[in-house]
């Protein structure tokens, strides 16, 4: 039984079709790395999973809820599907702890005290216990992104979507974020990552998805796919990365 099931999803921006019938099954505990050139539709696919983007045809089931379905409680869906963004998108007027506590208190109506405990737990998980009272502007990019991960985890999602979460970081800050994601993977968190970190995709990923021109072009176990890409497009893509 898949945790996330994507079936023949098609999506157009005006005349431009960016997803041309994408299907993908993600089981609990999977770490799916989606790679591909910019414009291949990988971020759009990710954004369809939690309903940030709508799609024209096909179906997505996330934890049994039909995304974009007539009778689906979209709020319920998003409580189960967390998302971390390239640009962190922390709330600048709130402290690190405030960022983490907001959704539990507002959405889940958790008490302030309990939310504070959740915040402490999640900030510890991302190694930022000492920064709970810091504002985003006082944190480095890597620290901000780790707070953003903690903020998503505070809702205890079943699956976490990561949209190029290290692409906006200075090179020396990439690893601290990847280590956190790797730890999550080890704890059994289901992750779907759009990434340009090939080494990370290979070492941590359980599934690799190569997207090309709005379709899943090649998929498999990362180590095998990287060692012997079958399609010329992936060969070229992997070769181009070096």
């Amino acid at each position: 039984m898949s945790l996330v099931s994507i079936r023949e999803v098609r999506k157009s921006f005006g005349p431009l079709e960016v997803l041309k019938g994408v299907s993908l099954e993600v089981a609990k505990g999977d770490v799916v790395a989606i790679i591909g050139r910019s414009g291949s539709g990988k971020s759009t696919l990710l954004r369809c999973i939690n309903g940030l983007e709508t799609f024209q045809s096909g179906a997505i089931l996330a934890d049994g809820l039909e995304v974009g379905g007539m009778h689906t409680d979209v709020r319920e869906l998003r409580r189960h599907v967390g998302m971390v963004f390239q640009q962190f998108n922390l709330f600048p007027h709130l402290t690190a702890a405030g960022n983490v506590m907001l959704a539990p208190t507002v959405v889940n109506k958790t008490s302030k005290k309990e939310a504070a405990e959740i915040a402490a737990e999640m900030l510890a998980k991302v190694g930022l216990s000492d920064k709970r009272d810091a504002y985003p502007s006082q944190l480095s990019g890597g620290q901000q992104q780790r707070v953003a991960i903690a903020r998503s985890l505070a809702m205890r999602p079943k699956v976490l979507l990561c949209d190029e979460i290290t692409s906006a970081l200075d090179p020396e800050l990439v690893n601290e974020v990847l280590r956190v994601v790797e730890q999550l993977a080890k704890e059994g968190m289901t992750l779907i990552l759009v990434t340009h970190e090939m080494r990370f995709a290979r070492d941590v990923g359980t599934n690799l998805v190569f997207m090309h021109h709005g379709k899943v072009h090649e998929t498999g176990v990362p180590k095998e796919v990287f060692a012997a890409p079958k399609t010329p497009e992936l060969q070229q893509f992997v070769g181009g990365i070096g």
Binding site: R78, M83, Q87, N89, F91, V106, V107, R151
Partner: peptide
Amino acid sequence: IPKGQWEASTSLAMTYFEQMRYV
């Protein structure tokens, strides 16, 4: 206010009123 603020709060399952009020 940057679009990312809406997207982040949307992803945290907040409603429009909650987003306006708290973010």
